[in-house]
């Protein structure tokens, strides 16, 4: 099963955009290097956060999970996180071994992700205003 990779800029400029990576198919030993390659320029431009839409992802192996863990590590070092939305049950099962890591966000939908981001921004703004 191949992997289809779609990278969509949802906001911002080419240099500092907000990106969503949509994956469809199988992320395994054969396809993980393709994703790693496609993500290199995105990681240079995406700032602190990157969202993966996994609604179409049917299978993930440990080689695929390793690519996500690299993204998570880099974003965490920038103070951001890798977010994953719309995971199918079999993918959620595999994510159990990384879901507790700092820098990993798992959301059932884009709406839930947006609520989380809005809440996070409120906390940051309140902190800047001296509120807790």
């Amino acid at each position: 099963m191949p992997l289809d990779i779609q990278i969509v800029r949802t906001a911002g400029s080419d240099q500092t955009g907000v990106y969503t990576v949509k994956l469809t198919g199988s992320l395994d030993t054969l396809t993980a290097p393709d994703l790693e390659k496609e993500l290199t320029p995105v990681m240079a431009r995406c700032g602190k956060d990157l969202m993966f839409d996994l609604a179409g992802l049917k299978f993930i192996s440990s080689a695929g999970l390793r690519v996500f863990s690299m993204v998570r590590k880099q974003l965490k070092e920038r103070g951001g996180m890798a977010s994953f939305i719309s995971l199918q049950p079999q993918i959620t099962e595999v994510f159990a071994i990384i879901k507790a890591l700092p820098g990993v966000g798992m959301f059932t939908s884009e709406a839930e992700f947006d609520s989380y981001i809005a809440a996070r921004q409120r906390i940051v703004q309140n902190g800047q205003n001296g509120q807790v």
């Binding site: 998570r72 159990a96 071994i97 990384i98 890591l101 700092p102």
Partner: peptide, 12 residues
Amino acid sequence: NLGTALGFEEGL
């Protein structure tokens, strides 16, 4: 439980 795999992050 499965727990978290090893090698991702120190201090788990």
